[in-house]
């Protein structure tokens, strides 16, 4: 990933990012907190997956970073520079060319009235990166080639392409401006299974060959594990656990992560959990506005913020949960990650 001897400034970092959406009527001043102070960093040439269910705030985070939404407070640092202070009201063109977004729906993100050529050329022109004359054609062909499409498609309309091909065009459009960071918001969830892997492989190749950093948003844990170097779990607008992907998904420490992991259909593990208990737990999760897992009356998440605990020895895996007990602790209350869920259910 990165050379540990060189002090690294993350490619992209968010610090204490808060986003409140106003709700209620004209005269009421209530608001819904979508992001409750998120800290996340993405290294150069690193893919970080952000997982969680609908409504957990993953897309809001991406939209704030893309500056499609204005964060209520917090910092967004690109190469260590606070971009919210630099361009206070809207993102500069420079920022937009450095941070590009790929959306979930390739059927909605390409205007049906234009040919593929148009989308790519327009991106290049807006950012002043378009070549002139025949060189432009070469530039476009090279872009399509990077994403695994043929040059003939330049004159096609979106409706002539399959979902997978359209998503590749959307990625080519993002690549046109040579971004440093790509924010991919569920880029495969609307695609057929058979082409999903192809898109994931393409994103991995862009990381490996061009050193592009990525925030990969998904609710598909298996694809996060496949693609991302690190995975962060979002629950009710806060990151509750983060770690190296394989390690995190092998030993999820937060009960919410465990809930997510247990929900992935896997015939090999069939019957390894009790659906009744899980349904009940999930109902509790849905009802609660903060943390549904806190059962210890002295240490509720609502009254005191849980601190980060390091999990394991690698130093990359942490969890924020009062229930977490490190495995090597001498107290009788030791909770192995796999049993934490059962303990919550029992109470």
């Amino acid at each position: 990933m990165t050379d540990p001897t060189v002090p690294q400034i993350p490619s992209l970092e968010v610090q204490g990012l808060v986003k409140d959406f106003p709700s209620g009527g004209l005269f009421s001043r209530t608001s819904v907190r979508a992001l409750g102070g998120v800290n996340l960093s993405i290294g150069r040439g690193e893919i970080v997956a952000l997982v969680g269910e609908s409504g957990s705030g993953k897309s809001t985070l991406a939209r704030c970073v893309a500056r499609l939404e204005k964060p209520t407070s917090g910092k967004i640092l690109l190469d260590g520079v606070d971009v919210l202070r630099r361009d206070r009201f809207s993102a500069s063109r420079e920022y937009r060319s450095q941070v590009q977004m790929v959306f979930q729906d390739p059927f909605g993100s390409l205007n049906p009235a234009h040919r593929i050529e148009h989308f790519l050329t327009r991106s290049l022109e807006i950012h002043g990166k378009a070549h002139k004359g025949a060189a432009l054609r070469e530039q476009l062909a090279a872009l399509l080639q990077t994403v695994g499409l043929s040059e003939d498609m330049l004159s096609s309309y979106p409706h002539e392409l399959s979902g997978g091909q359209r998503q590749r065009v959307a990625i080519a459009r993002a690549l046109a401006v040579e971004p440093q960071v790509i924010l991919a918001d569920e880029p495969t969830s609307m695609l057929d299974v058979s082409v999903r892997i192809g898109i994931l492989n393409l994103l991995a190749r862009l990381r490996d060959e061009q050193g592009i950093s990525m925030l990969y948003i998904t609710h598909d844990l298996a694809s996060a594990r496949y693609l991302a170097d690190r995975t962060a779990v979002m629950f009710a607008g806060e990151l509750v656990e983060e770690g190296e992907s394989l390690e995190l998904l092998a030993e999820p420490a937060h009960p919410y992560t465990q809930l997510l992991v247990s929900a992935v259909p896997d015939p090999a593990r069939s019957g390894s959990y009790d659906p009744e208990e899980r349904a009940r737990l999930r109902a509790a999760v849905m009802k609660s506005s903060s943390c549904a897992f806190d059962t210890d009356p002295n240490q509720r998440c609502s009254s005191s913020e849980p601190v980060r605990h390091q999990v394991g020895e690698t130093g990359t895996h942490w969890v924020r949960c009062h229930l977490y007990r490190p495995q090597n602790a001498s107290t009788a209350h030791t909770v192995a990650p796999s049993t934490a869920l059962t303990e919550t259910q029992a109470s």
Binding site: G164, V193, S194, I197, N201, L221, A222, Y226, L249, D266
Partner: peptide, 15 residues
């Protein structure tokens, strides 16, 4: 992609 076992490249099916 699987949720267990080593991470290995998959090829998918193509378009």
């Amino acid at each position: 992609p699987p949720l267990t076992g080593p991470r290995r490249p998959l090829r998918g099916l193509g378009d």
